[in-house]
């Protein structure tokens, strides 16, 4: 059974006239890494957010299944506790809330859903501090308010910290690579590679092929006009780097 199955979805901003996603289908098996590439405005970020359940988007048709369960109508928090994680392109700043505190609440919510015992403060602190080291976050940042005054790169590292601690089944990464320097990019890639497992899948949404030099995807999909116009293996990303999106835009327009 696929871990994620997206069946012919149409989605738009709530009450908008025009659909952004126009009949998109995608199937990701456990253990696979998929990359979604596409030009600006093709619907990449919309797809990532529709999967996560962002309230200002609505699905007008089609369905989304996570491990066989239809999650199309679920709230973002209901999807999250089921193991769907979105690494945000622009993570929110939360004044007065420390990263530790935020993640503890998140871990607790997941444990509660699973009917598991919540981690004690000491146990969780251990997990947290270990992850802070691995993600190479300045430990000072974890004492500040979440994402407040963090640089773009620090915010992205912080997203990886959360992904690492929450151990989701499906990791959707919305342009995590954009704006990163090479060191940060390598850290992100190392975290993804380290987290790859036969049960866990990744959907890497990106504009550039750069990150795919460090994380080899099993499948690459090209998204144009709210639809996947071509799928292939990692070779497709390299081709794209040479030829650009132009020819796919033409194909989509002609279709």
């Amino acid at each position: 059974m696929p871990l994620l199955e997206v069946k012919d979805i149409h989605a738009r901003v709530v009450n908008a006239d025009k659909s952004i996603l126009q009949g998109l289908s995608l199937s990701i098996n456990p253990g696979e890494v998929h990359a979604i590439m596409g030009p600006n405005g093709s619907g990449k970020s919309t797809l990532a957010n529709v999967l996560a359940g962002r309230p200002d988007y609505e699905l007008t048709s089609g369905e989304i299944r996570l491990a066989g369960e239809d999650i199309s109508a679920l709230l973002p928090e209901e999807r999250a506790v089921r193991g769907l994680f979105l690494a945000f392109q622009y993570p929110a700043e939360i004044p007065g809330v420390r990263p530790w505190q935020f993640l503890k609440a998140s871990v607790d919510a997941i444990a509660e859903y699973r009917g598991e015992k919540k981690l004690g403060v000491r146990e969780f602190t251990k997990v947290f501090e270990q992850a802070v080291k691995e993600v190479a976050i300045n430990p000072e940042l974890s004492k500040r308010s979440l994402n407040e005054g963090f640089s773009g790169g620090e915010k992205k590292r912080n997203e990886m910290l959360q992904m690492k601690i929450l151990q989701p089944r499906l990791c959707v990464m919305d342009e995590t690579d954009s704006g990163l320097d090479i060191d940060a990019l390598k850290t992100v890639a190392a975290i993804v590679n380290g987290m790859r497992s036969p049960e866990r899948s990744f959907l890497i949404v990106t504009h550039y092929q750069r990150i795919l030099e460090h994380v080899t995807p099993d499948f690459v999909h090209i998204l144009v006009g709210g639809r996947i116009v071509k799928s292939g293996n990692s070779q497709l990303a390299r081709e794209l780097e040479k030829t650009g999106y132009e020819r796919f835009i033409k194909v989509a327009a002609g279709a």
């Binding site: 359940g53 929110a92 993640l103 609440a105």
Partner: peptide, 29 residues
Amino acid sequence: DLDTLYYMRSRGIGLEAATQMLIRGFAAE
């Protein structure tokens, strides 16, 4: 901020708990 709430909810924190966390954070200062 609804984007902030969405961010918190995407981590499994329900609407009510997220709102309360924002209030506590705002008051904390």
